[in-house]
Design a protein around this nucleic acid. Sequence first.
DNA 1: GTTAATTAACTAACCAGTCAGTTATATATG
DNA 2: CATATATAACTGACTGGTTAGTTAATTAAC
Lengths: 219, 219
Amino acid sequence: MPTTPPAPRWRRRSDARPQELLDAALETFVERGYAATNMDEIARRAGVSKGTLYLYYPGKAELLKAVVRQSLLGNLAEAQTLASAHSGTFRELLNYFLGEFTRRISRTNISGIPKLILAESGNFPEIAQFYFDEVIQRARKLITDILRQGIACGEFRPVDPDYAWRMIVAPLVLGVLWKHTFQPFEPDGLDFDRYLDCQLDMLAHGLVASEVPVGRNTP
Amino acid sequence: MPTTPPAPRWRRRSDARPQELLDAALETFVERGYAATNMDEIARRAGVSKGTLYLYYPGKAELLKAVVRQSLLGNLAEAQTLASAHSGTFRELLNYFLGEFTRRISRTNISGIPKLILAESGNFPEIAQFYFDEVIQRARKLITDILRQGIACGEFRPVDPDYAWRMIVAPLVLGVLWKHTFQPFEPDGLDFDRYLDCQLDMLAHGLVASEVPVGRNTP
DNA sequence: GTTAATTAACTAACCAGTCAGTTATATATG
DNA sequence: CATATATAACTGACTGGTTAGTTAATTAAC
């Protein structure tokens, strides 16, 4: 009786491994947090032994950095090219960004990264600094630019852009954190479509100049 | 030559200790996160040995719970009595809450608790559930009630209270997280007064019905 | 057969929690 | 008031378990 050749205990996948390992690491870090995640678990999820993990990434901290960089850099570049190529009103542009962001929150689990950064900012000032410089500062510039231009051309009320940008971002941040923290406790989860509608509605009627504010602008 | 009696190596402070230990624990947990905090460090900050710490709290997890409970319960009760005793418009009440909250964010370091909860929700479902039930649900009810009443009496635009409450809370949450995460990286820190002004301005003009919305409400 | 990829067993460090012993303070006694 | 005794508060060295990181042996692949 011819025995079928036994399946090999493992396969060489040196090209696919890095991404597989990053995926497993992201998943585990987001679920458990940095400190409570152990390298054996990440390796196990990637279907690999711990030694292999160390073959591709020199340590736990470096692995975290790789995860963060890899997850964010693509989206950042994309947002920036989109902004520079826009036509139409600034309100439309803003709405588009918020919509796209919300859509991605609800689908991918890259949305776990901000929570991870927050949680570990004290222990990884280097990562926090990276996130501050590369993500937050860019987002700030993107939005304050839109606000300033919109105000200049009379589309928006004259708010303080250096503070107002946070009001725009805040619901997005809250949404992300909610999804990865309290979603499990809610019987019926957050409806991101309604969430977005509500935000756009409230945001617009706080920004749009055509509504004739009540006695505030007295030029 | 009369030798001055040597200062005692330690003093008995059985009544003050519990609070001192909680303070040190809050500070350390907020700064480092739960897992990266070690009991020796907390004891050291409280000026005490690790053994003493275990005399007052049975373990690390229990210490965290004690910190959270102790920090929140007082403020919660206060908010609720305030709400039930209000007179004046609902907009004033809302503004008062936001102002009071913002003022406390900028002063105390209880504001580190939400960050702590977020970071450890995965590892301490029990604490996350406690926070969800006792803090979030109460805040939600408080705000949605105000919104509903305000809408009913025509003071506010007819927004969706079940989602709009998050838009109100979001900037507060962002402020808290910012303070404990990115404040160190900013040359000039967040000005919480301007922050509040900006929020109230944008919030009001998204909520106040007298502004005659642009073609949305078609009764 | 050679080599690169992978494994699994190992080491070294760290830390939560314990406990036998020490010291400050309160109380009793003369 | 001085001194002895009792006890509550506190210390710090130790233990057991966990885990980041290493390495010698093994296996797939060409």
